[in-house]
């Protein structure tokens, strides 16, 4: 039940997939994201970011002074037209 629970809704990544990947590769939050696509959907990880962070195996001191999963623009969805210079 808990295993099948969706953590990343945009990319439909389950708890099981994240937990197994974190264990198998003993990986950082960033690697966990890249391996599973959790946090890479259209919402930009606004829902699952903190959960991906917690499931990652790597909880070193670096975490204290650095945001583990980088924020990149655009941080809100924008239309392709606006992004591309307004040609309709």
């Amino acid at each position: 039940m808990t295993e099948d629970m969706i953590i990343c809704r945009c990319e439909e990544v389950t708890y099981k997939e994240l937990a197994e990947t974190a264990n198998k590769y003993n990986c950082s939050a960033r690697e966990l994201k890249l391996r599973t696509r959790a946090g890479m959907g259209y919402c930009g990880g606004r829902t699952c970011r903190n959960m991906v962070d917690k499931l990652a195996a790597d909880l070193t001191d670096e975490r204290q002074t650095q945001i583990t999963l980088k924020y990149q623009p655009p941080i809100r969805p924008i239309h392709f037209g606006d992004l591309g210079g307004g040609q309709s």
């Binding site: 903190n50 975490r63 204290q64 002074t65 650095q66 945001i67 980088k70 924020y71 990149q72 623009p73 941080i75």
Partner: peptide, 16 residues
Amino acid sequence: YPLAELAALTGCPFYL
């Protein structure tokens, strides 16, 4: 939790 997305884009130092 503090909503830091925009501040994180600026390169401002952060602490947990």
